[in-house]
Amino acid sequence: MPNVGDTAPDFSLTANDGKTYSLSQFRGKRHVVLVFYPGDDTPTCTAQLCDYRDGWSEFQELDAVILGVSTNDLAAHQKFAEKFAFPFPLLEDPERQLCKAYGVLMLGGLLPVANRAVFIIDKQGVIRYRHVETIPIFKRSRGELLDALRKLAD
């Protein structure tokens, strides 16, 4: 698992909007809030992503983009994003390569899924904030993430 101060692993994944996103496309331009979550349209994941949606303008003011990541497929992402009007992309990680690269693949149950985790990556591609939940029913609030982004701006 990469630590704060490490260069963030790059990726190139397709999102619910049909576009392909890579971490390198934001380098030098924007901070990236990389949000791993276990599953689309589940109670805790929905509450978490809706919280970020409701603070979208604040993230934008801090020059940050949110990228959601789970192991769900594009059809599930599209349905979830439309249902809750998420203004940020939900990336499909079908081979679980991004989850593995960030050390957040949770094994157990029927299928391996992403553990709930958030990484904030600065404009140079360096991880400046990392939180991986030990109990996946908990989540990071938008206030905590916005505070971390404000500290990066100082």
Rank of each mutant, 00 (worst) to 15 (best):
M1E: 14
P2Q: 10
N3T: 06
N3P: 03
D6M: 07
A8E: 07
P9T: 05
P9W: 05
F11S: 08
S12G: 04
T14F: 07
T14E: 14
A15R: 06
N16H: 13
D17K: 06
D17M: 06
D17Q: 06
G18E: 03
K19D: 05
K19Q: 11
K19E: 05
Y21M: 03
S22M: 04
S22H: 00
L23N: 01
S24R: 03
S24Y: 03
Q25K: 10
Q25M: 15
F26A: 03
R27V: 00
G28Q: 09
R30G: 04
H31D: 07
H31I: 04
V32R: 08
V33F: 06
L34F: 04
V35F: 08
F36Y: 12
F36P: 08
F36H: 12
Y37K: 13
P38D: 14
P38N: 12
G39C: 06
D41H: 09
D41E: 13
T42K: 11
P43F: 09
T46A: 12
T46C: 10
T46V: 11
A47Y: 10
A47M: 11
Q48E: 15
C50H: 06
C50G: 08
C50V: 15
R53C: 10
R53M: 12
G55N: 12
W56P: 07
W56M: 08
A64H: 00
A64I: 00
A64Y: 00
V65F: 02
V65P: 00
V65T: 00
I66P: 05
I66S: 03
L67S: 03
L67Y: 06
L67H: 00
G68F: 02
T71E: 08
L74Q: 02
A75I: 14
H77W: 08
F80K: 07
F80W: 13
K83P: 08
K83H: 11
F84T: 11
A85L: 13
F86W: 02
F86C: 04
P89N: 02
C99N: 10
C99Q: 14
A101Y: 05
G103E: 11
G103Y: 13
V104W: 14
V104F: 15
L105P: 11
L105Q: 12
L105I: 13
M106H: 13
L110D: 12
R116W: 07
R116G: 10
A117M: 12
V118N: 01
F119C: 08
F119Q: 10
D122Q: 03
Q124G: 05
Q124W: 01
Q124M: 00
R128P: 01
Y129L: 01
Y129T: 05
Y129P: 02
R130A: 14
H131A: 09
E133I: 07
I135A: 14
I137G: 09
I137R: 15
F138W: 15
K139I: 11
K139R: 15
R142E: 02
G143F: 04
E144Q: 09
L145V: 00
L145E: 05
L145G: 04
L145W: 04
D147W: 03
D147A: 15
R150L: 05
K151A: 15
D154E: 14
D154N: 13
